[in-house]
Design a protein around this nucleic acid. Structure first.
Lengths: 143, 143
DNA sequence: TTGTATTAGTTGATAAAGTCAACTAATGAT
DNA sequence: ATCATTAGTTGACTTTATCAACTAATACAA
């Protein structure tokens, strides 16, 4: 039975470890023209479209000015289209264009590929266990 | 039994979740004058001192030019002292000064406090389980 | 030993990323 | 109607990060 200090140390060690792993997994973005933030915004748009900037901000911690500019750039480069909400003219809903969807699929596949490479080292049973541990962590921390 | 695609999706969902959690836990640094990178460098120096820039780079992914500047600034502000290695004059070993140690302790306590707050929502048994899941993940992924 | 490659670290120049406040326009609430 | 709030934009700026060129020291092999 570990004492509290020991538990805290272990969690921080895991956090350092996992920060590094997340960094490795996100490395493939360096070969693309997109940052992690942009990739994540694209992911949110894909998941929630048509979606407002505010909705995106409720899923990602990001400055609204920064987000506004990213979306502006996305529109300029033809990745998304904007449409003012018919219910509330303050709100602009964004959706992926065909080009945006193609890009999303490309980035998404690359992300999946990273994970797949990680999983290749594990047996099927170990893979199930890994996911089990992850879900257990989320469950423990989400109450 | 989940198929591979399902497993990949679950892992990516965990990664998004944990990225957000790490962001929250690192938020306390916004109230300090130090960035996450700086805090981590300070941590490495504390752990490994006397330590070279190269050694730090083997623990953190960071540009050597950037690291060089951070260390230069640390020295300038009296947080670390530098000493050329007696065995190899290319190598500069850095150590925390008393001021640096004080700062480290402060940042360290704040980090621990963040974790402690997270743990407060859990019973002692759940805390042990949480650490168990984390170690299991590390074990699975580190082979 | 001498030349060649490698390693450690620094610096200049630049780009990318993120922050903050002021602002407009639309809507909500009393 | 007025006042407050919400959504989003923009300008100005700082911080963070990247990359290549460079010096100096050491390793290594002929």
């Amino acid at each position: 039975m570990k004492d509290k200090q020991h538990i805290i140390d272990d969690i921080r060690a895991f956090n350092r470890y996992y920060t590094g792993l997340l960094g490795l997994l996100n490395n493939h973005l360096l070969d693309s023209d997109y940052s992690l933030a942009e990739a994540r915004i694209l992911y949110e748009i894909h998941s929630l479209q048509p979606v407002s900037a505010s909705q995106i901000m409720s899923n990602i911690v990001i400055d609204k000015g920064y987000l506004s500019r990213v979306l502006k750039q996305f529109e300029k480069s033809g990745l998304i289209s904007k449409q003012v909400s018919s219910e509330d003219a303050r709100i602009t809903l964004v959706s992926l264009t065909a080009t945006g969807l193609t890009l999303f699929n490309k980035l998404n596949s690359a992300s999946e590929e990273q994970i797949a490479t990680l999983l290749n080292k594990l047996s099927s049973k170990e893979q199930q266990q890994l996911v089990g541990h992850m879900q257990a962590i989320r469950t423990l921390l989400s109450d």
